[in-house]
Write a protein that binds this DNA or RNA. Structure first.
Lengths: 124, 124
DNA sequence: CTTAGAGTTCTACGAGTCGTAGAATTGGTT
DNA sequence: AACCAATTCTACGACTCGTAGAACTCTAAG
């Protein structure tokens, strides 16, 4: 699975925040009023820039688009939760000593999260 | 945290398999008889190549070396399990809806691993 | 039908990373 | 003083990413 750059990541976040798909139209609005990470870096991105990364994300299989409608509609293929969980699985799978990894993982997770995990695992 | 390339990864694996640190000497042996991924790609790496990536890994904080001894001794800073767990944590932290991610994660993990997790989490 | 304008694709460049390794340098040993 | 192994420096080609203008393609209006 691919690792995303900063802008790619930001675009995925846009898509995840906008489940009803975005288009070149939507984009213009989003770009003008987006909270820029560095506060005052001012100049908004060109629309084509975002279109380019959308294409790249499509090639990577993270985004799909409807080509039928005129302003193409872009949407994320998987939810952010799914995507992230998948990544975690992949990372876990990259080590041969999975048990050991899980042990460390559990050891570092917050107590609240540990509780969540217990619930999710259920008893027996 | 950094994402590793193929060779960098392979070198880390070498280090992790060799807890007693490796040197330019050790390297020569390891390189000649290492199992090449593609079976018959034949030509072994130059020693300097590996030294270069070791330096890069050092800069990334994954490797530390003893400069006192003449053949410098390289070793991994963290165990593979620690490193991997850290990565997983980082991935998990990249999403705002951590609970949802954990839910998906648990849903995908094998039953055996789920059991392991239950044990690790303990009751209450 | 012809055309303009919105929307889409193509092409490109500069910075950064990685695999790769020779060239130059250093430092201990004879 | 000189040699040799070990280390560092420098470099290049391939690839990724942020960035976006140039060129092209629809569709809707005239």
């Amino acid at each position: 699975m691919a690792t995303l750059g900063d802008l790619e990541r930001a675009v995925m976040d846009l898509l995840w925040e906008h489940p009803e798909a975005i288009t070149a139209n939507t984009l213009r609005d989003l770009l003008s009023q987006r909270p820029s990470a560095t506060e005052a870096d001012s100049r908004p991105l060109a629309v084509t820039t975002v279109l380019t990364v959308l294409s790249r994300l499509e090639k990577k299989g993270l985004v799909e688009r409807e080509r039928a409608t005129r302003p193409h509609r872009y949407r994320a293929v998987t939810s952010r939760a799914d995507h992230t969980a998948e990544l975690m699985l992949e990372v876990l799978g990259s080590a041969p000593d999975r048990e050991a990894v899980l042990a460390r993982f559990i050891g570092t997770v917050s107590e609240g999260e540990a509780e969540t995990l217990r619930k999710l695992l259920g008893r027996d």
